[in-house]
Amino acid sequence: MMNEPLFMVPVLHEKIWGGDQLKKQFGYDIPSPKTGEAWGISAHKNGLTTIANGEYAGVKLVDVWRKHPELFADMDTTKPFPLMVKILDAHADLSIQVHPNDAYAKKHEGPRELGKTECWYVLSATLGASIYYGHTATTKSELREMVQTGNWQKLLKRKVVKAGDFIYVPSGTIHALGAGVVVLEPQRSSDTTYRLYDFDRIDQTTGKKRSLDWDKAMDVTTVPFTEPVVEQETIEEKNFQQTQLIDSPDFIVNRLRIKADKTISKTQPKDSFTLASVVDGSGEIIKDGHKSTLNKGDHFIIPSNFGDYEIEGSELEIVTTEPGEKIKQIG
């Protein structure tokens, strides 16, 4: 029986819109001041995270997934690992984009490709920073006309955000992070993005504008856009708060806040596993007398056979992601 979670070594990606907040806020060893993404937990081919500790130290998560289904509620590990967690630093606006659902991704991108539903938990935002979220078109033809004529100001909806905000982004939603926003992004394990607009930026590698995907993007965009209603529940006691940010078919996301001198008891259900990211503070996980240190920027998995454990914290904030019912049913 394991007495410590599976800690991950994040994979860092440079982006045209990236900055240096992943180093400043989380201490990551970024490859350049244009680092946009830290893939904290990933078994996707474009960013394979590695186990940092224990008997699987040095092994890629994807290999542990394939060989040890007992750690993942005996899901079908011949299929792709279903979830991913990133931290994104938007030093500049991201491209205006949309993601497909599972059926479209499999048909157009390959039989093992997943669709991409995601969510954002805002970790920091400069004053007045915003996101692009949704659109005004009422029909597909109106959407196509506004895209082709570049009527972005009329088409795109924007929303001002602040630290602590939560945004649910189902597949089919036109969206983008705006400059000055840093988010934790729990999502399906997919890297399929269809760009509608990229502000005419030039890729420094090619010297050309980045490619756009109008046809596929308009295929998959949900029209009209209706902002999802997300119901949240909070349990609160002295020095501890747990908020369920969302319970969706793809993932269940919770935020835990633990103040100093507080220990909470947890039990990992045998029918699920938990992806966890430390977004603030420090603490420990205690399992059978063994203590694992938690620091801001850590990402780890609590496997389905982990059983009972405790968490101690000092202004500790953890965001956890678990498979939703759809993933459990198809897994």
Rank of each mutant, 00 (worst) to 15 (best):
K262W: 02
T274I: 15
I264A: 07
P303F: 03
D308F: 02
E310A: 05
Q268S: 10
D298S: 09
V278Q: 07
F273E: 11
G313W: 06
D298I: 09
S272F: 02
F300G: 11
D288M: 06
T267A: 08
N305R: 03
T293A: 13
G313Q: 07
T267C: 06
V278R: 10
F273D: 08
S282T: 14
T274A: 03
G307L: 06
S272N: 15
I302K: 01
P269T: 06
I302H: 04
I285W: 01
S265F: 10
I285Y: 03
K270T: 15
I302E: 07
N295S: 13
G281S: 04
I286L: 09
F300V: 10
H299V: 04
F300P: 12
S265I: 08
I302P: 04
G313H: 08
P269E: 03
D271I: 09
I301S: 01
T263C: 07
L294I: 11
K296I: 05
E312P: 00
G313Y: 08
K287I: 03
K270N: 12
D308R: 00
F300I: 10
A276P: 00
G307S: 05
D288G: 00
T263S: 11
I311T: 09
S272Q: 12
S314H: 13
Y309T: 05
H299G: 07
Q268E: 14
V278W: 03
G283Q: 10
G297T: 08
E284N: 10
D308I: 00
A276S: 15
V278K: 09
E284P: 00
I311A: 04
K270Y: 12
V278N: 05
F273Y: 15
S272E: 03
K270W: 08
G297S: 09
H299Y: 14
I301Y: 07
K266I: 04
G313A: 07
G289H: 11
G283H: 06
G289N: 13
D271Q: 13
K287F: 01
L294S: 05
G313D: 06
G297K: 11
G281E: 06
T293R: 13
P303V: 09
D308L: 00
N305C: 09
D280I: 01
L275I: 14
Y309I: 04
K296W: 00
E284V: 01
S282R: 15
S277L: 14
N305T: 05
I286R: 05
E284H: 08
E310Y: 05
A276K: 08
S277T: 15
E312L: 00
Q268K: 11
S292I: 05
I301R: 02
G283D: 12
S272P: 13
H299D: 01
P303L: 04
S314K: 14
G289W: 10
G307F: 05
T274L: 14
L275A: 12
H299K: 02
L275C: 13
I286H: 04
S277V: 15
G307R: 06
K266L: 14
L275M: 15
V278S: 08
I285E: 02
S314V: 12
Q268M: 15
D288R: 10
F273R: 11
I264Q: 00
D271F: 05
G289K: 12
T274P: 03
N295F: 01
S292R: 02
S265D: 14
D271S: 13
S314N: 15
D308E: 12
S292P: 13
H290S: 11
S304G: 06
K291P: 06
F306C: 00
S277F: 13
I311Q: 06
H299M: 12
F273K: 11
K266T: 02
Y309S: 00
I302G: 04
I301F: 07
T293W: 01
